[in-house]
């Protein structure tokens, strides 16, 4: 008999009698959307990231262009910010991506309680981009911030694409004497632009 059958049979023999799953119902304080945005910003700051509210995308476009003007390898995946780096596909290898200095990526939602954003594989073009770049810039609709993980999972479909990530702040480690070091293996910094509608 295969290990698969052995394991499954052993479980069937040894498991306790059926226990009903609990219903996820949480009594929580209700956050207004302004409070949720403020909490997102302060939480992200507390974990080493930064979030700023911008009206429209003009400022981001300008900053993207300024970065490109330095000659550094800047990757943009968001069409409304300007030229998109079409040379990057799902098949682009690590050697080609290693020089990426800064990447601009869109996110689907943000979460107030932990400062995380959800990024689908399609938003990053290549799974490595948000990790291998030295600095990461994420763009998110300011109205897409939810209070907690419960709302987050109800609004995304984690299985829709091959890969997706909750990303909260820059890469970090405290493995040496619990001293916090920002920039372990992934991006050294994270800036989240919260895009608000342009006021007329």
């Amino acid at each position: 008999m295969s290990s698969r059958e052995n394991i499954l049979q052993a479980i069937t023999a040894n498991k306790p009698s059926f226990i009903e799953p609990p219903i996820i119902e949480m009594k929580r304080a209700v956050l207004s959307s302004t409070e949720a945005v403020q909490q997102f910003i302060s939480t992200l700051e507390s974990i080493g990231g930064k979030a700023v509210i911008v009206e429209g995308v003009n400022l981001i476009r300008e900053n993207l262009q300024l970065s490109r003007d330095t000659g550094a390898y800047i990757v943009n995946t968001i069409p409304m910010l300007g030229e998109v780096n079409d040379e990057i596909t799902t098949a682009t290898d690590a050697h080609s991506l290693e020089p990426v200095f800064k990447a601009y990526i869109g996110a689907t939602i943000g979460i107030a309680e932990n400062g995380a954003v959800w990024i689908y594989e399609s938003e990053m073009k290549n799974r490595l981009v948000p990790f291998i770049c030295q600095h990461l810039v994420v763009c998110l609709d300011v109205n897409k911030i939810v209070p907690t993980m419960h709302e987050a999972y109800s609004q995304i479909d984690v299985a829709k694409e091959g890969y997706g990530v909750f990303l909260a702040g820059p890469s970090k480690t405290a493995d040496i004497e619990q001293s916090l070091v920002i920039g372990a293996h992934g991006a050294r910094s994270l800036l989240v632009y919260l895009i608000a509608p342009v006021l007329k």
Binding site: I47, V158, V165, F166, G186
Partner: peptide, 10 residues
């Protein structure tokens, strides 16, 4: 509040 990366592989 959450780890920096919570990666969902499908």
């Amino acid at each position: 509040p959450i780890t920096t990366y919570s990666s969902h592989f499908n």
